[in-house]
Structures are given as C-alpha cells and as structure tokens.
C-alpha cells in the first residue's frame, strides 16, 4: 500500500542554513503521527512543503500520491491544514468563517450548512457560533480551527502546534477531540509539537526531529528502548546492608526479567529489567537481610528521551 504522506530526501535551504536536511518519512493511512522537536527544528517548514506553501530545495513530497510542489491545489483538496497560531476574520462570526471556507471548497450550500452545524456541535461551539470571532478565547479559536480544517472532509489533517497557548484542561479536550474525530472519519493525522508529554498520549507513532534531521521514528516505547537504554524498566533502590553486596547482586541477577545490576554509589542500586519486577526485587533485597529505604521504578516518556538525547549530544560535543 502506498503511504499517505511520503517524503523522499527532502531538503530546504535558506541561504547557508539548512532548515530541513535530507528527510525521509512515510506515514501510513490511519496513523496519528507526531512530529516532535524543539523550536526551529524545521517542523513547520516540512509541513509547508507538504502543502506546496513553500518549495523544497531538493527532494520530493507526495501526499495522497500527488506531488505537493507541482500540484498543490489537488493536494489541498484532500488535506486540511491548521497553521500555527491560526487566524480568523475577526469581524465575522465563527459560523461565517466556516461558511467562507466551505464556499472556497465548493461545497454546496445545503451540505455546507449541515456539516458546519455538525462540526460546531462536536467542537462544542454551537452557542458561540454566531458571535464574532473577536470575542473567542484562545481555546475556542483552536477548536474553531479544528472545525475549519474538517469542513472540507479531508483525508489527511495536518496540525501545526495545535496545543500552543492553551491551558492543560483545554489541551486534553482538544487532543481527545482530535483522536475522536480522526477515528470517526478514518483520518490520517500529522501533528507537530514541541510539547512532548502532551502529544505522546495520542500518537501512534512519533518522529524526533532536531536541526532538520529525523533522529528516530517509531512508537514511544520503541524510541525509549532505542535512545535511552537496552532496559525497558529500570529500578533504583537505596539500601543499607551489614555485609558485602556481592551476594545480593548474584541473587538479584537470578530473578526472571532482571538483566543488569549495578552499584552506583554506596548503597544505591541500579537494576535494569526487561519487565516490571519491582515486587520481586524488593522481596529479594529484604530476604537477603538488607534494609530497603527506597525503591523507585522508572519508565521513560518522551521528555526523558529528549533530555537524554541532548545530554548525550552535549557530552559528545564537549569530548570532541
């Protein structure tokens, strides 16, 4: 099956600066893909190239099998795009703004009315529908943006920083709405963000994007395994022990699922496991006659992955 979004060796220069550097990426139908990276990583530029709003310096962009650089209009018929910090005509009501979009998409009047009514209900804006957009809050605008994107019944929606500037509750509502609507209509979703933990809840796959390059892509778990350590679950334990620790180490290693045991400092144990073995580890420590003060299990989210990646990079740079 052909990928819905296919980028081949995509590159964009601004003078000497490489905003996007040899990007290869495929996004399949029905995926919720998160493009993650810090500010200035080239996420927005990549998205603009997918819509033909800017031209790549080299490489190819195909969306729904269409070349986005040479045939942007056909692409834009199938793709809904919510720009970062979206703007509306402030003097028009939310309903009128959506109607304008519907007319630009050549949707028949009757059908447009039905769709808009439906979308406004889903984004819980029906009460504010006939107020001027000027009076809308940030969260309402963003929800209106989502409705605006969906008016044309797209196959793919591309959201650039959809959660920017919304309060935590609003973010959760918006993300839930995105997931709900995309499942309902079988949409492919691409969203970019620099807020990792917000996005990791809803993405089936993420791509880490730094300085124009895709570092890694995969599910959050896969990325954690790839970038952080070989061990999926890591346990830290602080103990005091009358005798030597060699005995305890051997005993812990015998437990099923424990792959690695290290003593980091006096009384601080690091245990790497392939599955959650915290209960067994605790029992083993106590049975060995040591006293257990503290035991914590760590699983890694994208924030840690990110942080870890940059730390690694910094030390490398210092070393070089």
């Amino acid at each position: 099956m052909q990928a819905v979004i296919q980028l081949d060796n995509l590159t964009k220069h601004y003078g000497d600066f490489k905003a996007v550097d040899g990007l290869n990426l495929q996004i399949q139908k029905g995926e919720v893909f998160g493009l993650l990276g810090p500010n200035g990583a080239g996420k927005s530029t990549t998205i603009l190239m997918m819509l033909g709003l800017t031209e790549p310096s080299s490489g190819l962009v195909h969306v729904c099998g269409l070349n986005a650089t040479t045939n942007p209009k056909a692409v834009k018929e199938k793709v809904g795009y919510l720009p970062e910090d979206v703007g509306f005509y402030d003097d028009l009501s939310g309903w009128e703004n959506l109607m304008f979009t519907a007319r630009l998409n050549r949707i028949a009047e009757e059908e447009a009315r039905n769709r808009i009514e439906d979308l406004l209900k889903k984004t819980s804006l029906e009460k504010a529908a006939h107020q001027k957009v000027r009076t809308y809050s940030r969260g309402m605008r963003q929800r209106l943006g989502l409705a605006d994107v969906l008016v044309k019944n797209p196959e793919v929606i591309i959201l650039d920083e959809p959660t920017l500037g919304i309060d935590p509750k609003g973010v959760k509502e918006l993300l839930d709405l995105i997931v709900e609507l995309s499942r309902e209509k079988g949409l492919t979703v691409l969203l970019s963000s620099h807020h990792l933990h917000q996005v990791q809840q809803i993405c089936t796959r993420v791509g880490l994007f730094v300085q124009g390059k895709l570092l890694a892509s995969g599910s959050v778990d896969e990325l954690a395994a790839e970038l952080i350590s070989k061990h999926l679950v890591q346990i830290e334990a602080r103990i005091t022990q009358p005798q030597s620790t060699a005995n305890l180490e051997a005993e812990l290693l015998q437990l099923e699922g424990v792959d690695d045991v290290k003593i980091l400092s006096k009384g601080l144990l690091y245990i790497g496991c392939s599955k959650d073995t915290s209960a067994e580890v605790a029992r083993a420590i106590v049975e060995a006659g040591a006293s257990l003060h503290h035991l914590s299990k760590k699983t890694y989210g994208l924030d840690d992955i990110y942080q870890r990646y940059f730390e690694e990079r910094k030390t490398k740079e210092v070393g070089a």
Binding site: K76, G87, F88, T101
Partner: peptide, 13 residues
C-alpha cells in the same frame, strides 16, 4: 491576522 496561511491552504490558486 494569520488568515493568509489558512486561506491559501484551501484548494484555490
């Protein structure tokens, strides 16, 4: 106003 990108991402030339 931020409407430029939104309008030009509609299927118009």
């Amino acid at each position: 106003r931020g409407t430029l990108a939104r309008i030009l991402s509609q299927p118009i030339f």
